[in-house]
Amino acid sequence: MDPLWNNIFRKKLDEDSLAHFLKHLPIFLELSSRALTMLENVVHIRNYNANETVFEENDPGSGMYMIRSGMVKIYARDQNGTEHELATLSPGDFFGETTLTAPAPRSASARTMENTELVGLFRADILELAEKHPAVSSSILLGLTRVVSERLQAASLEIRRLQNQAGGHISPENVET
């Protein structure tokens, strides 16, 4: 076939498409292709420069970000204002998912380390989607719940391990989850 025609009629490269990116995130693994198309229409693509703040600790949090390209540093500040790095996230990772359903201040700050493309999904989008397509939004929320519960379980296992390690120095009442 003529390469010119080939180019026109072929769809956008599958690996480049937003749907492809979303489909491979653990949250959206089980979404149908119809749900993915709808998700594609409600997420926001934002481009950040290097060293740009995504959000600060205590900012009003209303959604999650997924990293499509670039790197993001998650950090917390202590009372003296010194930054303590909590994690470095790379493409395919996501953060801020705990504030997607419950409005809460951000528990840590996030800053880009290089030019970064983030895909944002916010509570307002989910609520709007829930009005029109309840089934789709519930499958998205189910995926989110699954990931959050997995993380919660891992965290509680980690707490128990640390408790055992400390040999009963920390009583269960003092552990904040």
Binding site: R46, G120, F122, D125
Partner: peptide, 10 residues
């Protein structure tokens, strides 16, 4: 702008 995007959306 990026910094205020989330708040504006909400």
């Amino acid at each position: 702008p990026n910094r205020y995007f989330e708040m504006v959306r909400d």
